[in-house]
């Protein structure tokens, strides 16, 4: 669906993106991760043709990115807003027409979405008279009104209350079911693990990591095991820093070059093994670890 090759962009002396490669396949939710100021927004703005890149190329379905692709992308920026004095209806018509929809087409699509998100009764209200949650629904509809095959959402859940965030999350999943490709830029890892099929991480203008969630997680296995031993027959070394709870002891140990079976065998001498489980890092931990690593090195 989207292929990015050696994309670079700098603002005066500051590098925003250096030689970024990315590939997003059709019909997935792709998480674009990175701390603030990493270059995510720059990348997204370049895909949306709001700014130009210095070098590199972008392809959509194999075609070099061109002005006609504007109609194929739906974009919800992190910094977003609506005309406060305009009615819900007029506003949506305006956005839909700017995306190239005919007046008739725009009207039927808007009606469909207003019904779907249950805000039909609010059509003629001005945005300033709506509650925040309702305005956010309007904002979301404006982004998807032209049925874009590619949807780019920058921090889509920021500012949403939990109820609306849930509604929007379900809408995103429903769009994915219909074949829409979604790029989700965020630094909230819990939504990444829940929604994304694939991720890429950007820090300080460079891509530092990408792959499916499973791939990423497995490549970041710290080779540490969480262990619980009961009915001790031999004292556990102090340096393991075990926590005692009744007769059980909980602690973690790295493999330190051994195989899991070797480690397990050694541990069996201390007592009865109640639990022996590999510690799998959360995306949050990987994120923090990677950001720190790339900053130190």
């Amino acid at each position: 669906m989207l292929k990015i090759e050696k994309l670079s962009k700098s603002y005066n002396a500051t590098k925003a993106l250096s030689d970024v490669d990315l590939e997003v396949s059709k019909g997935i939710i792709f998480g674009l991760l990175g701390p603030n100021g990493a270059g995510k927004t720059t990348l997204i703005r370049i895909i949306n043709q709001i700014i130009d890149s210095d070098s590199g190329s972008i392809f959509i379905n194999g075609e070099l990115l061109a002005p006609k692709h504007i109609a194929q992308i739906g974009y919800l920026p992190e910094e977003r807003g609506l005309y406060k004095k305009m009615s819900v209806w007029d506003q949506m018509i305006y956005f839909a027409r700017l995306k190239g929809l005919s007046s008739v087409d725009a009207k039927s699509k808007i009606n469909h979405w207003l019904d779907r998100l249950e805000i039909s009764n609010w059509k003629q209200k001005k945005i300033e008279d709506l509650s925040k949650g309702m305005a956010q629904k309007v904002q979301f509809i404006s982004t998807v009104i032209h049925n874009p095959p590619l949807l780019i959402l920058d921090e889509p859940f920021s500012g949403f209350d939990p109820v609306n965030a849930e509604i929007i999350k379900n809408e995103i999943l429903a769009l994915k079911e219909k074949g829409t490709t979604v790029i989700l830029s965020t630094h909230r890892m819990e939504s990444v693990e829940l929604l994304c099929d694939q991720v890429a991480m950007i820090n300080r203008s460079k891509k530092i990591l990408d792959g499916t969630i499973k791939q990423v997680k497995s490549s970041f296995r710290p080779e540490v095991y969480s262990i619980t031993i009961d009915h001790l027959v031999q004292m556990i070394p102090k340096e393991w820093a075990a926590k005692q709870e009744d007769s059980s002891f909980h602690f973690t140990l790295p493999l330190s070059g051994k195989t899991p079976n070797q480690l397990l065998h050694e541990l069996m001498e201390y007592g009865e093994i109640m639990k022996f489980q590999e510690v799998i890092p959360s995306m949050e931990e990987i994120f923090i670890h990677q950001v720190k690593a790339s900053e130190n090195g």
């Binding site: 043709q49 709001i50 992308i73 977003r80 807003g81 005309y83 700017l98």
Partner: peptide, 12 residues
């Protein structure tokens, strides 16, 4: 200031 402009410039 109402942050509407980024949505607009992604369309024109």
């Amino acid at each position: 200031s109402s942050r509407i402009v980024e949505i607009l410039v992604s369309s024109l």
